[in-house]
Design a binder for these strands. Structure first.
Lengths: 137, 137
DNA sequence: AGCCATAGTGAGAATGATTATCAAAGTCAT
DNA sequence: ATGACTTTGATAATCATTCTCACTATGGCT
């Protein structure tokens, strides 16, 4: 079920590499600017295209910031959830067996099929908590 | 912690009532059109303002559709999660003690503070499953 | 090498939700 | 009714994302 390696264009590979180096979620615009800062000038359209492709194969995870902007991150391919720092954006992949069970149980109780679920935890990481000042924004 | 009743404008009250009658999440645009269909012509700006106010007091829940559009729903004021039908949008409020515990445990293990979490379950409800054809869209 | 077919790129336009403006209309205690 | 203040809503402005389309790179094939 885990999408296997799919064909990826040259720019797609570079964009994936860029995400590999980050430990936090990044918006398409941040990726665009980040690559530009490295001298790699991709068009926004290319970035969005690559991101779509990467998310469709499951190589990249997406989630929505509260303002609706999409954030992307390169992750392990197996199912997992995230613990995200509201200060610096640092993201930790976590497992959630109890969440899986919970979703399954609830869904069954109500007769729902084709279940998916989302579960993320947000908070302030120890670094940001001690430094009164968050690293980002 | 649960935000108490806050002052609400006249239109805000009408918009809240409109949401009261729905059992599924609605976008701002849907609310706009729905009210208009009832002969209540509010400006979009007014709808968005009321929605902001309602969500800030916790009277209305927000979540993001996969395309990033915000969806609103009048809910019980105590903390809960949602089971949402991907077919008709029908939404059921559910509790998730195990999720709360999970979030708390994980956060503590990593030293995170000021924890929040989100957890929703999506699936096809029994009605939509039997009728091959979903009610909405 | 030269040539075609096809996929990939990117500047800029188009879309669409949300937010900001701001003048006009409503509210209310005096 | 008067003035101080709030609410409203038509419209313009933002901003992320998607679409267009001419142009370029690529890969086979001779």
């Amino acid at each position: 079920m885990a999408g296997g390696r799919k064909f990826m264009t040259k720019s797609g590979i570079e964009i994936a590499k860029f995400l590999d180096k980050r430990e936090s979620f990044a918006s398409a615009q941040e990726i665009f600017l980040g690559l530009r800062a490295e001298g790699r000038n991709f068009g926004l359209a290319t970035i969005y295209r690559a991101l779509q492709s990467l998310t469709s194969t499951g190589e990249v995870d997406v989630l929505r910031r509260s303002d609706g902007e999409a954030l992307y991150r390169k992750c392990g391919e197996d199912h997992h959830h995230h613990l995200i720092c509201k200060g610096c954006g640092k993201t930790i992949e976590i497992e959630g067996v109890s969440v899986e069970e919970w979703a399954h149980t609830i869904a069954e109780r109500h007769g729902f099929r084709e279940i998916q679920h989302s579960a993320e935890i947000f908070g302030i990481c120890p670094d940001c908590f001690t430094q009164a000042e968050p690293k980002r924004r």
